[in-house]
Design a protein around this nucleic acid. Structure first.
Length: 278
DNA sequence: ACCTAAACCTGGGCGC
DNA sequence: TGCGCCCAGGTTTAGG
């Protein structure tokens, strides 16, 4: 259930803790989640050094010596945990990478109750581009994601919420942060994107940047038992700052006297205040 | 071309 | 205690 801030938190920690480590043994009990195969992963990664880690939308990308890549998508229930080899087993661990640097050993464990997550090996930057970046719109914090671009993607008959969740148009937003951003911007999730005024587009863009930054500041949202935790198994704290998400029937935090409404929109749970969000 | 629903999976929580 | 049903923050695919 990780969205941009959760993936960003994991990525930053990975960058600090696994760069310069070398892959040793690799184990899985869920080969379906691996692209192209466990065999390729073992052949191509064993003995290779990690040179960098970065995020692309909701993907964690681990860069390996000679421009090879390991791209990981956590989908709904995926977790990445960095453990000592001697640490007790993690529940629902389906893929495990042994790592070492000099005499220090670690384990990068990919855990995933629902097995929706994906771990992909790409043999060059071209393949990474083709398989990952082609499906991703610009990063919300990037220069490319300016007002002009927002105006462009919002020329869309679909409702605003569906547009913002579309990774091809803008990458990294998920259900939580869209709910929160629309509340901040005072825009109803059921509005058609194409009906937004310039002032509203301006406000929406600012709100998106604001909620994402706040999400990163609090190291992500861990609102459900089986939800997101960071690389060390620790919960984030953004859920304590939710304004409308999971606040059904609670008073509107703007104090308008209305109540937070819940309804499914495009199959996704949506929370908003009908008085403040038009 | 477009939108919706189902599928991918599992386990926790709820009502009976 | 146990069964059946519903739910989940993501994404893809099948069907209308």
């Amino acid at each position: 259930m990780p969205e941009l801030p959760e993936v960003e938190t994991i990525t930053r920690d990975l960058k600090n803790y696994i760069v310069d480590y070398t892959f040793s043994e690799i184990w899985t009990d869920s080969p379906k989640q691996i692209y192209p195969s466990l065999r390729v992963l073992k052949t191509k990664l064993t003995g290779q050094k990690i040179t960098g880690v970065f995020r692309a939308g909701k993907w964690v990308v681990i860069e390996i010596a000679n421009l090879k890549y390991l791209a990981i998508h956590l989908r709904m229930s995926g977790r990445l945990l960095l453990r000592k080899a001697s640490d007790i087993e993690d529940k629902y661990c389906h893929l495990l990478f042994g790592l070492f640097k000099d005499k220090t050993k670690k384990e990068l464990r990919f855990c995933d109750i629902r097995k929706f997550g994906k771990v992909c090996y790409f043999s060059d930057p071209e393949e990474l581009k083709k398989k990952i970046y082609t499906g991703l719109g610009p990063e919300p914090f990037s220069k490319k994601c300016n007002l002009e671009y927002f105006g462009l993607i919002l020329k869309n008959k679909a409702n605003i919420k569906t547009v913002l969740l579309d990774q091809k148009l803008i990458s990294g937003l998920g259900n939580i942060y869209v709910n929160e951003a629309l509340f901040l911007a005072g825009i109803s999730p059921i509005r058609a994107a194409e009906g937004l005024q310039n002032q509203e587009i301006f406000c929406l863009r600012n709100s998106i940047v604001q909620v994402l930054k706040k999400g990163i500041k609090y190291r992500g949202a861990s609102s459900k038992d089986r939800g997101y935790v960071d690389l060390f198994g620790k919960s984030g704290n953004y859920q304590s700052h939710f304004l409308v998400y999971e606040k059904e029937k609670k008073p509107c935090p703007k104090g308008c006297g209305g109540m937070v409404k819940y309804q499914k929109i495009g199959g996704r749970g949506s929370f908003w205040c009908e008085r403040c969000q038009r």
